[in-house]
Computed example of a mutant assay.
Amino acid sequence: MATTHQPGSSMKDLGWMESPGKISGLPSGLEYLAEIDQLLIHQQIEIFEALTNIDTKNRYAVRNTMGQQVYFVHEESDFWMRICCQSERGYLLHIVDNFGQEVIRVERPFKWCAGCCWFANADCCAWEVNVESPPGNIIGRVRQNQSPWKPYFDIIDASGNSVLKIRGPCCACQEICCRSDVEFNVLSADEGSEVGKISKQWGGLVREWMTAADNFGVSFPRDMDAKVKALMLAAAFLVDYMYFEMDYHVS
């Protein structure tokens, strides 16, 4: 698994997806996304966090539909920010491939008053993540948009153009009485058609009630630009922190 992976380890032993080879014009590491139409994100359960209610750094395994690991994701954040701000903390997510090379970096700047959808037209009140691939090269960002109630997001490319819209449900939560998957629909820029989906999957009563370790599915057209697929992956993490990275129900 990713927790024991070292650069240069055998992909076969670890169940990693084999690299399809370099693709001209595509940042190294994004070629894994070129030929797939779905990603499955599994957040790792942190026993210390479950027992103490103290937020630890999140870690995720990103797999394809065959169960092969595509990426491993680990969070970089300040300890006191995790204690004081919890799910509203700023963070860096380092997304590495099967050779331990960081291929995508996702940054969410901390904002004092971000989160409320009513005021998300103002930059200071909108959550957003900046996405780089490779680190240092901006390929786009995901930004919360103003809405009367439902979660709205824009996926924006490196030129500042909105290329996709995300529309979430009125109630983006999962509790004992709400056990179905929570779906965020991904629409074309003109909102004329649905092109993908980000789904928070129901993890079972014990997992949902005792931990904040979440499972997501991200689907998109196979022929979508791999950079935009990477932005959708980053959007899934933003959705996780905003709506599902909550305090545990046990003390």
Rank of each mutant, 00 (worst) to 15 (best):
K227R: 13
E46Y: 05
D190Y: 02
V186L: 07
M1G: 15
I156K: 03
M242V: 14
P169E: 00
L14D: 07
H42C: 12
A114P: 08
D157N: 11
S28D: 14
D247C: 14
A235G: 05
I198M: 02
E175D: 14
M246N: 15
R179W: 06
E88R: 12
E245A: 14
Q68K: 08
C170T: 10
E175Q: 13
I95F: 01
C113H: 08
R105F: 00
A120W: 03
T211M: 01
F48D: 13
D97Q: 00
D223R: 03
R167S: 05
I23Y: 02
R179S: 14
C173V: 12
L14P: 11
M81N: 09
A34D: 04
Y91T: 06
G15I: 01
G15R: 05
C178F: 11
N145A: 14
S133C: 06
N215F: 09
H42A: 13
Q68V: 05
P134F: 02
Y32I: 06
K197L: 11
A114L: 07
K111W: 01
A172M: 01
V195F: 06
R89M: 06
A212H: 13
V103S: 10
S9N: 09
R63K: 13
S24N: 07
E107F: 03
Q68W: 03
I45K: 10
V186T: 03
S77M: 07
K165V: 04
G115Q: 03
E245C: 15
C171Y: 02
L233T: 12
C113I: 10
Q44F: 05
M246G: 12
G192K: 00
G115F: 04
A158Y: 04
T52N: 10
Q6P: 11
C113D: 04
G140L: 00
V103Q: 00
R207V: 09
V62A: 04
R141T: 04
S24M: 02
F244Q: 05
G140H: 10
E46I: 04
S162G: 15
M232R: 01
W202S: 08
W118Y: 09
E46D: 14
S188C: 01
F79R: 11
S133N: 02
N185M: 11
K150W: 04
N145D: 15
A158N: 07
E46S: 14
N185S: 13
S87E: 13
I45E: 09
E76Y: 05
R207M: 12
A213I: 00
I83P: 13
H5R: 06
F48R: 13
E102Q: 09
C177H: 14
G168T: 00
A212Q: 09
V206I: 08
R143S: 10
E128C: 12
V62S: 08
E208F: 01
H5L: 12
R143N: 15
R167F: 10
F119H: 08
C113K: 10
Q101L: 05
T65S: 14
V106H: 00
L92K: 13
I156M: 04
V206N: 15
